[in-house]
Amino acid sequence: MLKKSHILFVLFFFLPVVSFVALGEDDSKLSREYKIKAAFLYNFIQFVDWPEDKEGSEDDPIIIGILGQDPFGDAFEPVAGKQIKGRKSLIKRIEGIKKLKKTDEPSNSEIESLRKCHLLFICSSEKDNLADIINLVNGQGVLTVGETSNMLKSGGMINFIVEENKVRFEINLSAVKQGKLKIRSQLLRLAKKVVEEKESKDEMS
């Protein structure tokens, strides 16, 4: 069973990757996209203020969580170990929520690790569980970033979009407010779209 799923996983996820590698150009395009996205993730942190209790002490690292199937590859290499706000950064990869849920009740420690993240990037692999995930970290001062079209509707805060080969993002201001985070106006100004998706919150609650 496990093996099967593994095979499936490999087939499902790596085929396109392989095909991209085969194509070459597309591959570099993709990797470039994720490099930019990785840099953007770091930059988001610069323009977002967390509530004081979440900020933690200076010695603690700023944790960037990657939830789900990691599409970045080595995209974090150029920024890895970079100081953010004078603090260390830490990339933490977490398995998909399905997996978490599969192990019976999602263990507290797993959920805690989700909630500890300052920024949680929800990969497109978790496209269907967005609401669940967001619900899990809601109110914990976690900046949720995604790259799927329903991200903002599901109560996510920032969503990457690709437009004319350029990586842009949109912001759900009400979610940010709800998360007790403050996004600096500079960042807001750069957003492709700033929405206030109230209903998502209602849905979720």
């Binding site: 930019i36 840099a39 930059n43 323009f47 100004r189 750069l190």
Partner: peptide, 14 residues
């Protein structure tokens, strides 16, 4: 100061 974010996010329009 104002271009900081734009540079960070490579947004020349801003």
């Amino acid at each position: 100061e104002n271009c900081k974010a734009a540079l960070a996010f490579e947004d020349p329009k801003d």
